[in-house]
C-alpha cells in the first residue's frame, strides 16, 4: 500500500515535469522585443483542449512561441479533450495566483462555477478559439474565428460548385463542442436558401482521422451512401480520413464525391494539390499574437473589446498550389 502511494506520487512528479518542460520558455533569443516591463514577469495560465488535430498543434505552437517571444511565464496545461481536466487546470491556476487565465473550452457548457471562482479570486479570464456558454461578465474577451461564418462559407462554396443541387453527408466534430454546433448551424443557414441541397447523413467523426475514416467507410456501404455527391467535414483531419475510406472503396475523392472541409491545415492543401480535396475554409490557428496582445492589455488594466474576430477565407483547388509553400502547420 505504501509503495503504491509512493509510486503514484512518482507518477505525479513525472507528469508534472512534462508539463513543466513545456512551460519553460527560454527568454530573449533576440527574436523580438521583450516586454519592457521591469520587475516581475507576467504569469499566464493557459488550458489547452489537447492535441486532437494538426490545427490544434499549430494553435499550441503559436501560443507557446508568442509567450517565449514576449518573455511571458506561460503555464501550459493539456486537457486531453476532457472538460474535467480543464476545470482542474483552471482551479490550479487560481490556486497558484497567476496574473491572467486563458483557455479554449473543449465543450460549451459547464464552465460557470469555475469561472466564477476565478472572478472571485480577481483573476481575469480570456477565452480563446471556442466560446463557452456563460454570462458575458465571467470573461474579459473572446478571441477566435466565427465558426458560424465558416460553416456558411463552406456551404456557399459547395452550393456554387454543385449548382445548388446535391445530396450531402456531414461529418460533425466532437458532439457538444462550439465549432461542431456552429459549423453545423452556419452550413444549414445557407442551405435554407438552396432547397435542392440536402444533408442526408450526419454523424460525428470526433475531429479525428481514424473516426472520419470509419464513419465514411460505413456510410459508403449504407443504402443512402450511393447517392452521396458531396461531403462536408467540420475539420480537415476528418476529411483526410474520409478521403482514405473513399480510395479504399474505389471511389475517386474530389471527383466522384466533392469534399469541402474547414481549418486549412498543410495536409489539406497537399490533398487539394493532389486533387483529392476540393475546398477548405481556413480557420487561422495562429492566435498567439492576438491572445497576448489582449493579455498584456488586460494585465495593464486597459480596455479590450468583448469579441475579437479572426478573419477567415477559403481556398480551393485553383488557389491551393500557390498557398501550399506558405503553410507552416
Amino acid at each position: 500500500m505504501k509503495r503504491a502511494l509512493w509510486l503514484s506520487l512518482f507518477a505525479f512528479v513525472v507528469i508534472g515535469c512534462n508539463s513543466g518542460d513545456t512551460a519553460k520558455a527560454p527568454e530573449g533569443g533576440g527574436a523580438a522585443p521583450a516586454k519592457p516591463e521591469a520587475g516581475k514577469k507576467l504569469v499566464v495560465g493557459f488550458s489547452q483542449i489537447g492535441a486532437e488535430s494538426d490545427w490544434r498543434t499549430a494553435n499550441t505552437e503559436s501560443i507557446r512561441s508568442e509567450a517565449e517571444k514576449r518573455g511571458v511565464d506561460l503555464k501550459f496545461a493539456d486537457a486531453q479533450q476532457k472538460a474535467e481536466n480543464q476545470i482542474k487546470a483552471i482551479k490550479s491556476f487560481i490556486a497558484q495566483g497567476v496574473d491572467v487565465i486563458a483557455f479554449a473550452p473543449v465543450v460549451e457548457t459547464g464552465w460557470e462555477p469555475v469561472l466564477r471562482e476565478a472572478k472571485d479570486a480577481g483573476i481575469p479570464v480570456i477565452v480563446s478559439d471556442r466560446r463557452p456558454d456563460v454570462p458575458e461578465d465571467l470573461y474579459v474577451t473572446f478571441i477566435g474565428a466565427d465558426f458560424v461564418k465558416e460553416g456558411e462559407m463552406a456551404a456557399e462554396w459547395l452550393a456554387k460548385k454543385m449548382d445548388g443541387k446535391a445530396k450531402i453527408a456531414e461529418l460533425t466534430g466532437t458532439t457538444g463542442s462550439a465549432p461542431a454546433n456552429d459549423r453545423a448551424k452556419g452550413f444549414r443557414n445557407v442551405l435554407a436558401n438552396h432547397p435542392e441541397m440536402e444533408i442526408v447523413f450526419t454523424q460525428t467523426g470526433d475531429f479525428t482521422r481514424a473516426k472520419g475514416k470509419e464513419v465514411m467507410e460505413a456510410l459508403l456501404k449504407s443504402p443512402q451512401g450511393k447517392d452521396i455527391k458531396a461531403v462536408y467535414a467540420h475539420n480537415d483531419d476528418m476529411a483526410l480520413g474520409a478521403i482514405q475510406a473513399m480510395e479504399e472503396a474505389g471511389i475517386k475523392p474530389g471527383k466522384d464525391i466533392i469534399i469541402v472541409s474547414i481549418d486549412g491545415v498543410k495536409a489539406a492543401f497537399e490533398a487539394m494539390v493532389a486533387g483529392k480535396l476540393n475546398c477548405t475554409v481556413e480557420c487561422n490557428p495562429l492566435l498567439g499574437p492576438y491572445l497576448f496582445d489582449a493579455i498584456e492589455k488586460v494585465a495593464k488594466g486597459e480596455e479590450v473589446p468583448k469579441r475579437v474576430v479572426i478573419e477567415d477565407k477559403w481556398y480551393d483547388e485553383s488557389t491551393a498550389a500557390a498557398e501550399l509553400p506558405n503553410r507552416k502547420y
Binding site: A4, L7, S8, A11, V14, I15, N18, A51, S53, D54, T57, T60, D78, Q80, R209, D237
Partner: peptide, 22 residues
Amino acid sequence: VATLLLMIAGRGVAQLLTNGQI
C-alpha cells in the same frame, strides 16, 4: 494502480516522442 500509471504517463511519453505533432 500500476497500469493506471502507464495509462496516464504513457500517453505523455507518446506525446513527448512526437512533440505533440501528428
